[in-house]
Design a protein around this nucleic acid. Sequence first.
DNA 1: TTGTACGCGTTATCAG
DNA 2: CTGATAACGCGTACAA
Lengths: 346, 346
Amino acid sequence: MPKASPHSASARPSLEDVARRAGVSTATVSRCLNFPSRVREETRARVAQAVADLGYTPHFGGRALASNRTDTMGAVIPTMDNAIFARGIQAVQEELATANATLLIASSGYDPVQEAREIAVLLSRGVDGLLLIGEARPASTYEMLIKRQVPFVLVWTWRADCPHVCVGFDNRAAARALASRVIALGHRDIAMIAGVTDWNDRASERVAGVREALEAAGLALGPDRLIESEYSLHGGAAAFEALRRGASAPTAVLCGNDVLAAGALRAARGLGLSVPRDVSITGFDNIDLAEAVHPSLATVHVPHRRMGAAAARALLALRDGTPLPDDLSFRTHIISRESLSEWPAL
Amino acid sequence: MPKASPHSASARPSLEDVARRAGVSTATVSRCLNFPSRVREETRARVAQAVADLGYTPHFGGRALASNRTDTMGAVIPTMDNAIFARGIQAVQEELATANATLLIASSGYDPVQEAREIAVLLSRGVDGLLLIGEARPASTYEMLIKRQVPFVLVWTWRADCPHVCVGFDNRAAARALASRVIALGHRDIAMIAGVTDWNDRASERVAGVREALEAAGLALGPDRLIESEYSLHGGAAAFEALRRGASAPTAVLCGNDVLAAGALRAARGLGLSVPRDVSITGFDNIDLAEAVHPSLATVHVPHRRMGAAAARALLALRDGTPLPDDLSFRTHIISRESLSEWPAL
DNA sequence: TTGTACGCGTTATCAG
DNA sequence: CTGATAACGCGTACAA
């Protein structure tokens, strides 16, 4: 007889408990919580008191079932282990909070299969919308999302003819600009330590951008000048060492992100090289790390926080059917720091 | 007429839709999903097919309501902006996943009031248990948790007589050991750049540990030798500069974590000081950053990932009423690196 | 092995 | 302004 326990002080209190205590119906309590204005001042106070006494918190499942809404958005990010996403996601959370929405975070470990699994989990939790990183994923994922009519936005990437809503910047153009700068400084033998490009459009677009800039200058990114590595300090270091093992050595090494660049920097020091005198090194993203290392890293500044906030707003707009904000594409800019200089060095 | 739409291909399919399509009852479908062994092979296949066709995902709210269980744990961490928590939480997630549980993450920004709010949110989402960082928080929070009978564990902290379940290490002892090492190297004027100790027992315990070691050696941590700072590169740099402004300067600066230490390192370079010749600097946590900077940071190694995994197991044990694992307290150890040397330097 | 029927906590409709 | 009451999707006794 479940209904029989009238005073179980320990269990989670329900709407009905509150109603009983306040001497009103459950409907009134519900209204008090959702539309306070539609309840008489005095009743409202009585209910508020009962809520406080009992420490009542609405049951999320019940609410979701009845209202078919969760005020929750989901995000699947490659990893939390990177300041980029950590910072951007924090901004997403803050922006959503202003609209009384919550963010559920899952990570995929850069694996599209795992990502699909996490998306399914989030959907079964009834998220009102989804925030995904980048554009590269199986078509089946997109089909499912569209069939289900789940609002979603793609972040950290942007191109004019992307068929989906995306909020971010043009990775290719940014990388091209950086490479052009390096070329303009006199470098002719340029190498790249890229992130793993498989199912990662940010990584592959950055490679493409570098390649374009080189070719526009009559140079090329030979196969022995391009190494892919997971985004880790150690990976960056190992890749740098591999690049130096050849007969000739590049005078500039462009890295797919700041973490790789910091690893390369460390490896350079280990090999007794002076940066930038012997070799220039650049990063990408402009996380704190870029300024913490010595020499400080020349890199590409990306407005992670503003992007995250904009993505959140776009997602809410999609959900509410209101017009999309127009600040979906962001500009990056090159940050000149110690690790990059002209070649040959003075 | 909600029930009237028999073939709404777009909306979210329900158990009933699946049942209809497979020509069985909803109970059978439910069993297929939860106890496959109790269903005949052939029926199971038909149901599986229907599930696949419809792209069915169980409705979380409905399930939570019916089973009063969510297979979800909640965690409130101070910030995602720190590799410590990012890494530890990732381990928590992985460990929970092996038990088919999910983790909901919220952040408090080091604010106990915000933390209480986030806890309420997580509870209303029906989490089966809670993972909290450190021990310092209002008594009211603990009272509520206990009254509600919510299983919870405290992580990143540990002391023998903690009244709650905690998984971590003795911050005070670790800091004491590090300070003792510094003293043994000959340093006599030692300063500390601590994290903000207000409502942060890890930060204050680390200060206490340093103080104890100094006093045991007949030294003291004068008020002008202790600065609190938020955990940021910039804060560490500013604090270091402040420490150097006095008439005399400390020969060793112990920092509350690696980020502060990296900031101090940068400030030292800015002031034209050589580390460790002019001043030694130490960190705490041993995150990647400690090895990325130059000189590399002497620090205290903390097994974040193992701690996270252990915390997850403890939480599951609490929920299931099984005996707690006994690997709740972890040992740290000092990592000697370039930034720390004897005094006076050779 | 399978089906029927009820209840979980909430919202929303409708009547008072 | 307030109260009854019918959904919402799922799990699970219980019956068949």
